[in-house]
């Protein structure tokens, strides 16, 4: 236990900040670059997880369990979101025979 907890004393909080920003930026680039809708959903998951990592780091450094409960709720919302998103994907594949994001342009009008 004490060996594990030395991570907080050795690794500064700024490292977790930089790692989390990097993961969030990679996820955003992926959501902008790719046109396959399932990869866009995966990039959304990646962005949610970078925020989760930052919340857990802050919560551990400040000794406050509220941040970790917030991460728990974010996981709940992510599970519900993926369920609905994947069923929309199945519907889209069935009706348009493809998983291209640009088909959704028609929703504009």
């Amino acid at each position: 236990m004490e060996n594990v907890m030395t991570a907080i004393r050795v690794v500064p909080l700024e490292h977790y900040l930089i790692l989390s920003f990097l993961l969030f930026s990679i996820g955003m680039v992926g959501a902008l670059v790719r046109r396959n809708i399932i990869i866009v959903i995966m990039c959304l998951e990646l962005m949610l997880n970078s925020v989760n990592l930052l919340l857990v780091a802050f919560s551990a450094y400040h000794s406050d369990p509220g941040g970790q409960v917030m991460v728990f709720f974010i996981m709940l919302v992510a599970a519900a979101e993926v369920t609905v998103g994947l069923s929309i994907l199945v519907l889209m594949k069935r009706n348009t025979d493809g998983v291209d994001m640009n088909i959704l342009n028609r929703l504009k009008w």
């Binding site: 236990m1 594990v4 907890m5 991570a7 907080i8 690794v11 977790y16 990592l53 857990v56 780091a57 919560s59 551990a60 970790q68 991460v71 728990f72």
Partner: peptide, 10 residues
């Protein structure tokens, strides 16, 4: 990373 931060439940 979570285990490293001692967030075992999460």
């Amino acid at each position: 990373h979570y285990i490293l931060l001692n967030a075992q439940f999460l």
